[in-house]
Design a binder for these strands. Structure first.
Lengths: 351, 351
DNA sequence: TTGTACGCGTTATCAG
DNA sequence: CTGATAACGCGTACAA
């Protein structure tokens, strides 16, 4: 491999060759403006602390050279990249998109940029990815973590970490208040005369899946409904399809799925198998993802304000890094049952 | 504002306080290993060019101190951040989801990280965002650009830029071969005896929208079908709803929408208004987005391999920065008509 | 208010 | 094969 650059740092920018004219630095600006580089630096970051005409000279030079600060150079002495990491278990999951949307916009508003990473549902990958993100970003949002509480706490020692839909001692989080949504759902099923409801769980390592089950079970007990758990399936449409048979065999007249994807898979498989929804079986999902109202019948679901949650998570990180004022906790975000067409009165009495 | 740090650079890492123990540097490693910092650097980046036992000493020290390279420090002399920017017009658009999915995975495979930005459909915002991305990332992918050819070319002078679904001279791009898909669609409509089809266009500034119209118009002429353009609506479900009336008034018996979102809005509005799809009117979308098969009837659509396109775009950027071998163009990616339930034989003859 | 000088953590040249 | 050292671009005590 040969190097024919005369740059002081051969690997450096000027060695790339492919690039256009070398970007201007504060030194170039300083020279043109007839001031010192440090003055330029100040003029750019602390507009007040500079004399009016020096400022003008600098601004003119900046325009003339089309100067832009080099963010990575700025980040080195500063330690801040104005970047926030967003880590999700599975990019494919529509839940993530709503979160990302809220997060991106919240970040952009504060002039921060989002850095994306996916863990492919693997705790090991997630840990590595989180560490990599923390090395670049000023803070990280864990959207659907499969890590242990300890691991998360440990990560949060170096830089601000915020988790979504998960409770970890000493780590700030943004939670959906699923209790109310679930209560509404169970009451809804109760009114429709259901006596037995199944819960199709998500990934084993999902904290949220376990939590949802606990609350569903609890509320069902209150209402004298028997709740039957149906073990860990993938949180996808396919996962839902595969779980359909087990649900049917359970004898339940209604089913609550870990999320909308699973619910949709369940519905597809059941309708495809000749069952009628909701006459034969009622289906409820979680999250109100994009498209959950496209189905026939449209899916009844416990909706979470995903975009807001993404935004709030960013907001919390921003506070932690001191980029924004605000204080106090962000209370759990409201959740509600969206009654659409996939739930109805029981027709076939439970055996 | 007071500063009580004794760090040489007060704004620097050690001043943050919130952070845990200061991260180890190569100097710490060097000291512990009893070698020079530059040796550590080499041991880490060029494993071959170091003696076996020096290497071991370094590795041990690395583990002992739990050392991690500082990516921003590395990026300064190097000029490479191992980061690629992905810029989209609207995060909310499901088309973007699939592209992002493919892109993220392709990037992760090569050990690159994705940086996200949204332009909110505004050319000004897009330009600014692109410039910001280019300052941080090693290259940028423009997924749904609203910029002019010149602006894009200009951006691509500093660092590699790849566009998706857009043709710009001198700028590498990843394109879906929409001709075949559209040909299939028009032929399909022809076989169903349609004589007049409407095209509901997308945003005025969308290059893709114009191109789709051109080809549709062309193919319709071939088949002696009259094609009627229905001007720029927002590329959203809402945009589709608003355009429904105009479509009906046009007297067309079939409509091709700028994308699936618009098509779904169209369908919702029409079905809501008492029309039957496809008996009264056939509807075809573009892209085969997530959920487009959830509708009733499921949407017939011209599908693009969005995830592959995202991946290919990243691949092209990676080649340009020399991070990956490969050469040659990436041919246009195949497109095909997915015939589902929203298209059928004309029932009402055109007036 | 402005200039001087140094350091942020890493890479790469150049001697040894 | 390894050590010393300059430089990447910028921010900021400190002195002027």
């Amino acid at each position: 491999m040969r190097t024919e650059s005369n740059s002081p740092v051969p690997g450096g920018p000027s060695a790339v060759g492919r690039e256009g004219r070398q970007a201007a630095t504060i030194y170039d600006v300083a020279k043109l403006a007839g001031v010192n580089a440090s003055t330029v630096s100040r003029a750019l970051s602390q507009p007040g602390r500079i004399s009016a005409k020096t400022d003008k000279k600098v601004q003119d030079a900046v325009k003339a050279l089309n100067y832009r600060v080099n963010p990575v150079a700025r980040a080195l002495p500063t330690g801040r990249t104005k970047t926030i990491g967003l880590l999700v278990a599975d990019i494919t999951n529509p839940v993530f998109f709503d979160i990302a949307r809220g997060a991106e916009r919240a970040a952009a508003t504060r002039d921060y940029t989002l850095v994306l990473a996916e863990s492919a549902e693997s705790p090991e990958t997630e840990l590595l990815a989180a560490q990599r993100l923390l090395a670049v970003a000023d803070g990280v949002v864990l959207a659907t973590s499969r890590l242990s509480d300890d691991q998360i706490r440990q990560l949060s020692q170096s830089k601000p970490v915020v988790v979504i839909n998960r409770e970890v001692a000493d780590v700030p989080s943004v939670m959906a208040d699923i209790e109310t949504g679930i209560s509404q759902a169970v009451r809804h099923l109760f009114m429709l005369a259901h006596k037995s409801v199944a819960y199709v769980a998500g990934p084993e390592r999902s904290w949220m899946s376990r939590r949802r089950w606990e609350i569903i079970n609890d509320r069902c007990n209150w209402s004298n409904i028997s709740a039957v758990p149906i073990g860990g399936s993938a949180p996808t449409v396919e996962g839902g399809r595969k779980a359909a048979m087990k649900v049917l065999e359970s004898g339940a007249t209604a089913v609550i799925a870990y999320n909308d994807l699973v619910a949709i898979g369940l519905m597809q498989e059941m309708v495809g198998g000749g069952k009628d929804v909701p006459d034969d079986i009622s289906i409820i999902g979680f999250d109100n993802i994009f498209g959950s109202d496209f189905t026939t019948p449209p899916l009844t679901t416990i909706s979470s304000p995903l975009a807001e949650m993404g935004a709030s998570a960013i907001e919390l990180v921003l506070r932690a890094v001191g980029a924004t004022e605000g204080a106090g906790d962000i209370g759990d975000l409201a959740t509600e049952l969206l009654i659409r067409g996939s739930t109805g009165k029981v027709r076939i009495p439970p055996r």
